[in-house]
Design a binder for these strands. Structure first.
Lengths: 190, 190
DNA sequence: TTTTGAAAGTGATCTAGGTCACGCGACCCC
DNA sequence: GGGGTCGCGTGACCTAGATCACTTTCAAAA
């Protein structure tokens, strides 16, 4: 399935677009390839795009004052990723985005998103629902962090995204869960 | 300022509506009053509405298996509150919503929101941005929880919402920060 | 006016998870 | 093919915050 089909199938789940409307929508995206380890957004950058993942796996993460990394999101195919705070508010990036594996993405600029949202009501509907889902998912994660211990959160993560186990090294899983790699290791090697 | 003016001013910040459009939009809201301690949404309820706060202060919270409360949100005037997961996915409530003080709200049903979003492009635009902001705020809170200690988070909270200090008892602040009330107390009484 | 109960402070003790230090195999890549 | 570094395990110790138990304060109910 090519890029266009993947995006079309994805959109069709929440919004109704005619073929012409979809073609027009699609014309605003730019296909891009990145290789393992490559940075897409770095702290301090002016953020102008969001990215729809076609293949591979990205991570968005924050580095705190003590140089510790906390992973906000693993982005798998059909997921969207960016520093949404910087993108929406047109401020400098505080979040980094890079590639865990080689990856193919479609990029869409902030200005173009707003333009097509204005032009096509259905597109605005789609983006409302995309954010609705992101909001609810982030809220669930916050609840999970506050109420569950590391082991439960680890198992919850693997149950929801089993594919991560093979693709993502344990130290990154630890950075997602917000624990040291030692603690994660000791969960199953006591 | 009456309910209608408060909502109108709030919407005007992100969407352009004619007076007739706003009147139509407003006609879908129902004004409701609640008193201190009263529950608006309880775990297990069918959730059909979201609430726009006109006056007073609400809290949305989760009770875990050990009967410990974790507060997701304090809802002050011009904030929106509900169990959005249950509302959007039409499932039973897992989140509770109740009143910290006497409160006046405008309620909007899920069905009506979807209906006016479809009818008025500007309203869909407004709700997209409302969720965008909620998403970014929740993501920031997640980052703060993972990267900062209790004292920093407490001071961050009070700096952002100084009014909470007078309205909300410390045990609820602790439940928002995700620490025991004893630990919060000890921060400033060592 | 008395009673009750929520909010808050505080001491003693416990524990999940952090930190530091070291070892060991695997896979890049000059 | 040998040196580097990355992922991962593991032991020894440390600390933020939890838990439990008791006390004080103060305001609302009766």
């Amino acid at each position: 399935m090519d890029a266009k089909e993947i995006l079309k199938t994805h959109i069709a789940k929440t919004a109704v677009l005619t073929d012409e409307q979809f073609d027009y929508f699609f014309s605003h995206f730019k296909s891009q390839s990145f290789h393992k380890g490559q940075a897409i957004i770095s702290k301090g950058d002016q953020v102008e795009h969001e990215y729809f993942v076609l293949s591979g796996c990205l991570k968005s993460f924050f580095i705190n004052d003590e140089q510790k990394m906390f992973i906000l999101q693993f982005a798998m195919p059909t997921w969207w990723a960016s520093d949404f705070n910087a993108l929406y508010n047109q401020t400098k990036a505080t979040i980094n985005l890079d590639c865990i594996t080689d990856a193919q993405v479609l990029s869409l600029s902030n200005a173009d998103r707003e333009k097509i949202c204005k032009e096509l009501h259905s597109v605005e509907h789609f983006f409302r629902w995309r954010t609705n889902k992101g909001f609810v998912a982030t809220q669930k994660r916050l609840l999970s962090v506050m109420n569950n211990n590391v082991k439960d959160r680890y198992e919850e993560l693997l149950k929801q995204y089993p594919e991560l186990y093979n693709i993502v090294p344990k130290n990154l899983i630890a950075a997602y869960l917000g624990v040291s790699r030692e603690t994660l290791s000791r969960l199953y090697h006591p």
